[in-house]
Design a protein around this nucleic acid. Structure first.
Length: 464
RNA sequence: GGCGACGUAGCCAAGUGGUAAGGCAGGGGUCUGCAAAACCCCUAUGCCCCGGUUCGAAUCCGGGCGUCGCCUCCA
């Protein structure tokens, strides 16, 4: 029953033991709000949302922090292109991101710190690194002394000197060592800048996460998340800073999600093969996108192609149909002995066991589909009340963690639809099948599913 | 070039020593006026290839082939 989690640092799946009993603290790297959000932003957000919900389901009190990098080179460049203030641009895309998260049913973080609101904390953090010898000032900037950390490279699995062979172009001659990275960048004319002991400037990219994670979560916290592409250099540098600052590890478990691919190739800025979430939401509902992101284990690459999404949506609709069938069902009464009853009764423990195993949402969905089949078997076997009651309970249990159920189901009781349905029933009784079929087509065109069954005809809409 | 990950049916995808989950697509049936939905049965004697360890391997080890990623902004 213990939760097991894969740790990128030790490259092992380890039992999860929270630092403080009953509580879990999590920090994940958020986005730089300089452009529209794409699927690559959505995946970690949705994955961590499922992880949070599962930990909560298991009784933990979760504190979740996710930052916004609201000052950096990309943002400055983009703002200059558009002739708009950096903070203005950042505010716009932060709002858009938040709205997107809502559509994906992602809970807001407990804290969403922004770099520009934490400059003092960051400056103090850097100062202590300088005082401790882990960093040095040079020409108005401050650099981290990478060689001061004997374990530098361990997280991303590389050796420092090998890494620097040939490839790196030396842009900052004031560095002691080419691998050193900026904690504080001296201001260039026209850029946003803040005062510091080393002159006007702004934070480097990596320092914010060390400073802010520790500000909001304390000296050690349980899990640190982010995309695989952040392993190096971002998280490697972050780890080095935090170790230099604290004298020990800040992070218990490093958790990295796999990347999104398109036709098997990584989606990236430089390849310009990204899809924005806005584009996707024109074709698919937030629930379809969310669950598709959870249909594959979080550490595996995920291919985002329309044909795969369509296939997934078809499967999800089967779950929706069952939900509409059982949504109003009363709790199950007397139990009978049958395979499908066993399946329905033990569903939740199997589901939670899948989630306990390194948050295996793919397997959890497999269990869910099994449960759907078992429920239908029960219904077909003549135990509709029992099967529906159990299925309802199970769907709600799974939904607590995965969040796939439609917010509300539109029932087929629209006045016009009811009239058409009544007339079709009359036509069928009179064996006027041509008219009956025409009326059915009309209903289908209006977006309804028409389900004829032994207890009469039902119509409903699938949520979209 | 260095380091790392992965290779499971037509497609997507779980499974890290005990005899291949699940989804989509496809075939056959039941039900139905017909269809849809649902249910039942079928669809990988085999998990990239070749060796090895083991009573037993998709799972461990060695070699090969292939794909992808990181080393540069990226979630």
């Amino acid at each position: 029953m213990a939760i097991r989690v894969y740790d990128s640092l030790t490259r092992q799946t380890r039992p999860f033991e929270p630092r403080v009993a009953g509580r879990v603290s999590i920090y994940t790297c958020g986005v730089t709000p300089y452009d529209q959000s794409h699927v690559g932003h959505a995946r970690p957000a949705v994955v961590w949302d499922a992880i949070r919900r599962h930990l909560m389901r298991r009784g933990y009190l979760v504190t979740f922090v996710q930052n916004f990098t609201d000052i950096d080179d990309k943002l400055i460049r983009r703002a200059a292109e558009l002739g708009r203030p950096v903070e203005d641009l950042a505010r716009q895309f932060i709002l858009e991101y938040d709205r997107l998260m809502e559509q994906l049913s992602v809970m807001p973080p407990d804290f969403a710190p922004q770099v520009t609101e934490n400059i003092d904390t960051i400056v103090a953090y850097i100062q202590r690194l300088v005082d401790g010898g882990g960093a040095y000032a040079a020409e108005g900037s401050v650099y981290f002394r990478v060689k001061s950390d004997p374990e530098y490279g361990k997280l991303s699995g590389r050796k420092l000197d090998e890494m620097l062979e040939g490839v790196r172009v030396e842009l900052e001659p004031e560095k002691e060592y080419p691998g050193d990275f900026a904690l504080w960048k001296a201001a260039r004319p026209g850029e946003p800048a803040w005062p510091s002991p080393w002159g006007e400037g702004r934070p480097g990219w990596h320092i914010e996460c060390s400073a802010m994670s520790q500000r909001y979560l304390g000296d050690t916290f349980d899990m640190h998340g982010g995309g695989m592409d952040l392993l190096f250099p971002h998280h490697e540098n972050e780890r080095a800073q935090s170790r230099a600052y604290l004298g020990h590890e800040a992070v218990n478990l490093w958790v990295h999600n796999g990347l999104i691919t398109r036709g098997g190739v990584k989606m990236s800025k430089s390849l310009k093969n990204g899809i924005t979430m806005a584009q996707l939401l024109e074709r698919y509902s937030g629930h379809v996108l969310r669950t598709y992101l959870l249909s594959v284990h979080y550490r595996k690459p995920l291919d985002f192609e329309g044909q795969h999404l369509d296939a997934w949506q078809t499967g999800l609709e089967r779950i929706y149909r069952l939900w509409q069938d059982v949504e109003a069902a009363p709790a199950a009464g007397a139990i009978v002995a049958a395979d499908w009853v066993e399946s329905l009764i033990h569903f939740e423990e199997r589901f939670l066991a899948a989630m306990d195993d390194d948050f295996n949402t793919a397997k959890a969905f497999g269990e869910l589909f099994d449960m759907v089949t078992a429920a239908h078997r029960g219904i077909d076997a003549g135990y509709a009340d029992l099967a529906k009651g159990l299925a309802r309970r199970n769907l709600l249990a799974a939904d607590q963690v995965l969040r796939f159920l439609p917010d509300r189901t539109e029932s087929g009781d629209g006045a016009l639809a009811e009239v058409l349905l009544t007339r079709r029933n009359q036509a069928r009784k009179q064996k006027n099948f041509a008219l009956a079929d025409a009326l059915r087509d009309t209903l289908i065109e209006a977006g309804y599913e028409v389900l004829d069954g032994p207890e009469g005809t039902r119509i409903h809409r699938l949520p979209q």
